Amino acid sequence: TFTSYQLEELEKVFQKTHYPDVYAREQLAMRTDLTEARVQVWFQNRRA
């Protein structure tokens, strides 16, 4: 599960791009204290 802060950050990036590159995902992962893999999976699920 994600915190409301994490979801907010993820959604913010999703609004800009549905396909963030690895750099964007790593920045987001650091900001949200998630792994890059978790961020990647979240985007895959969000796009589905």
Rank of each mutant, 00 (worst) to 15 (best):
T1P: 14
T1E: 15
T1M: 10
T1H: 14
F2C: 04
F2E: 02
F2P: 03
F2S: 11
T3R: 04
T3H: 06
T3E: 07
S4L: 11
S4R: 13
Y5V: 07
Y5M: 08
Y5G: 05
Y5C: 06
Q6N: 02
Q6W: 02
Q6E: 04
L7V: 12
L7W: 08
E8G: 08
E8V: 11
E8H: 10
E8N: 10
E9T: 04
E9V: 06
E9G: 02
L10H: 01
L10R: 00
L10I: 01
E11T: 03
E11F: 04
E11L: 03
K12A: 13
K12M: 09
K12D: 04
V13K: 03
V13H: 06
V13A: 13
V13C: 05
V13D: 02
F14Q: 01
F14C: 01
F14P: 00
Q15T: 07
Q15W: 07
Q15N: 10
Q15R: 11
Q15P: 00
K16H: 11
K16Q: 12
K16A: 12
K16E: 14
T17M: 10
T17R: 03
T17Q: 10
T17V: 06
H18P: 15
H18N: 11
Y19L: 03
Y19W: 14
Y19C: 06
Y19F: 13
P20I: 05
P20W: 03
P20M: 05
P20K: 05
D21F: 13
D21H: 05
D21A: 06
V22N: 09
V22W: 11
V22P: 08
V22A: 14
V22M: 10
Y23E: 10
Y23K: 14
Y23L: 12
A24K: 05
A24H: 08
R25V: 15
R25E: 03
R25M: 15
R25P: 01
R25Y: 08
E26G: 08
E26P: 02
E26R: 15
E26L: 13
E26I: 14
Q27T: 09
Q27K: 10
Q27I: 11
Q27F: 11
Q27S: 11
L28Y: 00
L28M: 03
L28Q: 01
L28N: 00
A29D: 12
A29R: 06
A29V: 10
A29M: 12
A29P: 01
A29F: 03
A29H: 02
M30K: 14
M30G: 06
M30D: 09
R31H: 05
R31L: 14
R31G: 04
T32Q: 02
T32P: 00
D33N: 15
D33M: 12
D33I: 15
D33L: 10
D33Y: 09
D33S: 13
L34W: 08
L34I: 04
L34G: 01
T35D: 10
T35V: 04
T35C: 03
T35Y: 03
T35K: 04
T35R: 03
T35F: 03
E36Q: 07
E36K: 05
E36M: 12
A37D: 13
A37R: 13
R38T: 14
R38V: 11
R38W: 12
R38E: 15
R38Y: 08
R38S: 13
V39D: 00
Q40A: 12
Q40D: 15
Q40M: 15
Q40E: 15
V41W: 15
V41Y: 15
V41N: 13
V41D: 12
V41A: 15
W42P: 01
W42F: 04
W42V: 09
W42L: 01
F43K: 00
F43M: 04
F43R: 00
F43V: 01
F43N: 00
F43S: 00
Q44D: 09
Q44V: 10
N45S: 10
N45L: 15
N45E: 14
N45M: 13
R46F: 02
R46Q: 05
R46N: 03
R46M: 07
R47I: 10
R47Y: 03
R47H: 05
R47W: 04
A48V: 11
A48D: 12
A48H: 12
